[in-house]
Amino acid sequence: MTKTRVLTGITTTGTPHLGNYVGAIRPAIEASQDTSVEAFYFLADFHALIKAQDPKLVEQSRREIAATWLALGLDTDNATFYRQSDIPEIPELSWLLSCVCAKGLMNRAHAYKAAVHDNEENGSPDPDRGVTMGLYGYPVLMAADILMFNANKVPVGRDQIQHIEMARDMAGRFNHLYKEQYFTLPEAVVDERVEVLNGLDGRKMSKSYNNTIPLFVPEKKLLKLIRKIKTNSLEPGEPKSTEGCTLFQIYSAFASTDQTEAMRTRYAEGIGWGEVKNELFELLNGQLSAPRERYQALLEDPGHIEAVLQQGAEKAREETTRTLERLRSAVGLGRFV
């Protein structure tokens, strides 16, 4: 049976939070345990350098994210788990793709257009002020990540669909120029069931809004953050709506169907906000306490994390070295024999 190849990258620019877990980590780990799927998960640390020039932040984030995925049960026997920076064939492929990618395609990339728009709005005489080649060429590196492993499906948010389309464009162009099917055309997978969690202030949970609840924060800090979640002024005994309620949204993302329906009934009966927050804390802490312990143990044993990532890189490079040798020959850079 031919397995479906699924590839996911995790940018190493921060500490994983509840929103990351619900939206990306949990479904990816479930997929890693599916024997019908050939999964590739990587720490996108080259991509991190586009936004983060603090080496301590990047290094800490790489370690924390790797420890998070391992603590939550990533099956590294079934899935390939590696650091992007440990695969030298990826930046080499990025250059090959750059040489077939039209500049006009890059000009239409959302991130670049947004940067230009901001400069124009701020009255800058230079529309490209602050735009690095890393930001501009980001879609090419992302295409290399995907096409190197000929991934069939790439789970993404709606804001990333364009990048998958650009990868398809580059793959098709390369195949056409060199007259062979070197690359599979990847498909973007947007799971409409994946919920985007709100943060402490009711907006989307995001590091940029500083409204996140870190996934493995200590118990006391977890309770403190939950108590900060914004609510309305309804008193205990007054019926409350679950619609648009951050507390209920987070609760339902971690609770069973029966627990969710029971909480919905309690809202209608007028449960107090303090009680909801306590219930949410108990639910989250109950599910996260064991992984939290594993996470802390992993952080204290960076050698183990390194060994797992090196094993993943070795597994990945068994394929990438063969693929790159074939591509080098295709463009005329093969060995003299």
Rank of each mutant, 00 (worst) to 15 (best):
L200N: 03
I164L: 05
P218G: 10
G157D: 08
T320W: 09
E64S: 04
S98Q: 12
A330Y: 08
S241L: 09
M1I: 12
K220C: 05
V190N: 07
V276D: 00
A151R: 05
E165S: 08
D118R: 15
Q259A: 04
L141Q: 02
A24K: 07
V331G: 12
Q249G: 02
N107A: 15
G137A: 13
D86S: 11
K153S: 05
F248V: 02
F248C: 03
Y178P: 08
N198W: 01
Q287S: 05
D128P: 01
G334D: 13
A24G: 08
M106I: 15
G172R: 12
D75Q: 04
A188P: 03
E293M: 11
L18I: 09
V217P: 01
Y267V: 05
P239N: 13
R328Y: 14
A255V: 01
T184D: 06
K240L: 01
A297R: 15
F81D: 00
S85N: 08
T231I: 03
Y209S: 12
E243Y: 09
A115E: 06
G334R: 15
N232L: 15
N232P: 10
N107Y: 12
E279H: 03
M133W: 12
L288V: 06
R264W: 04
N211C: 03
R108D: 06
T2M: 12
K51H: 14
I87P: 02
G73Q: 10
E243C: 04
D201A: 09
